[in-house]
Nucleic acid binder design. Structure first.
Lengths: 191, 191
DNA sequence: CACTTACGATACACAGTGGATCATAATGGA
DNA sequence: TCCATTATGATCCACTGTGTATCGTAAGTG
């Protein structure tokens, strides 16, 4: 929308992303007004619109940053042999960035953010796929893995301490990665 | 809110539920206005508020009806031995009520409706549980089963014809019911 | 240091909400 | 069948949030 090299622009956008993250942790997205975001960020109301068309655009940018970090870590692991190790990596990565993930995945706007993460992840994966999908099952499996792991992590972050990280990794391995791997090995007949 | 025996009330509410179902199939919930619902139902704007406090209350009622039907079918099956049969029953039940489920689970407001279905299901299950949960794992498992099946059905309904009903039942069995059953049999150590 | 550009403040039109009123019409009991 | 009851439709209104425009000021850039 505007120049990106100007230090003021960088500062303002960073303040807006930070404010959105905080507010998204506290309230469902529909309860967050642009005025509240601007106020929290310490910028003028009209200024908001010089940087983002609406609050969804801001949320999308915030989610996008999260997705990139997440995907870089997670993506190579999904096809990997060592499924327990893959699950551990995912869990540990989230633990290592607890505040932001807790805010956005498990916070008041978590539903919206997870939906956005799922959408973006599927788009990105479809665009950068090594091999073409071999059928509807491949599409389904991508959807299932990503949405299930996001949901499980959301539950886990909302019930912090209920299950320790190692057990959570085992659960992800046994309820998602392994069953999906088996499904790939021996698909239902007709697929 | 008002008398329920009056034929006009019954008619009006039925018209509102129907209108909400139709609109929810077409647009995301936030794009649906009370005026649009009233118009579609063929009733006056102010009349809407004599029956529901806001559009979320109406959606909750519509979703609630869906949930009751769904749960009556699904609930006894989740603990059942014959997991393939259980999965088949779920899939066939949805196929038997295709229009309404397609509209509400996979439609434009599907995200909101699924979240509401998940919420209500967990509340109902917690209230009417035979035995107390034996730990956090039980809570997690309920959450995982319900949310995963709802998501898988949503994908399936959105990609109608991509996978036939029998294959879908096999997928639900192999990616959800069986892994969860195994997890119950041999929980991660410490749970 | 001068030029450029982002910023804050404010005002505005617009859309949706939910509450209120009042005449009309449908309803169900006597 | 008639009548008291009450749901309904139409309309009005105050309130909140959105997104655009304007303008003087302050900050960053080269």
């Amino acid at each position: 929308m505007t120049t990106v090299s100007d230090a003021r622009v960088v500062r303002t956008r960073e303040a807006l992303r930070q404010a959105m993250t905080e507010l998204a942790a506290e309230s469902p997205l529909e309860a967050i007004t642009v005025r509240a975001i601007a106020a929290r960020a310490g910028i003028g109301y009209a200024t908001f619109f010089r940087h983002y068309t609406d609050k969804d655009a801001l949320l999308a940018e915030v989610a996008d940053i999260l997705i990139r970090q997440f995907m870089v870590q997670v993506r190579p692991l999904l096809m990997q042999r060592d499924r327990r190790g893959a699950a551990r990596t995912i869990v540990n990565f989230v633990v290592g960035h607890l505040p932001i993930y807790k805010a956005l995945i498990a916070g008041g706007s978590g539903e919206t953010v997870r939906a956005e993460m799922l959408r973006q992840t599927l788009v990105t994966m479809a665009a950068t796929r090594q091999r073409q999908p071999e059928g509807p099952l491949d599409d389904f499996i991508f959807f299932h893995i990503v949405s299930t792991i996001l949901n499980q992590l959301a539950w886990w972050l909302r019930h912090e301490g209920a299950i320790d990280a190692e057990a959570m990794a085992e659960i992800i391995e046994r309820t998602v990665l392994t069953p999906v791997s088996d499904l790939r090995q021996a698909p239902p007949k007709g697929l």
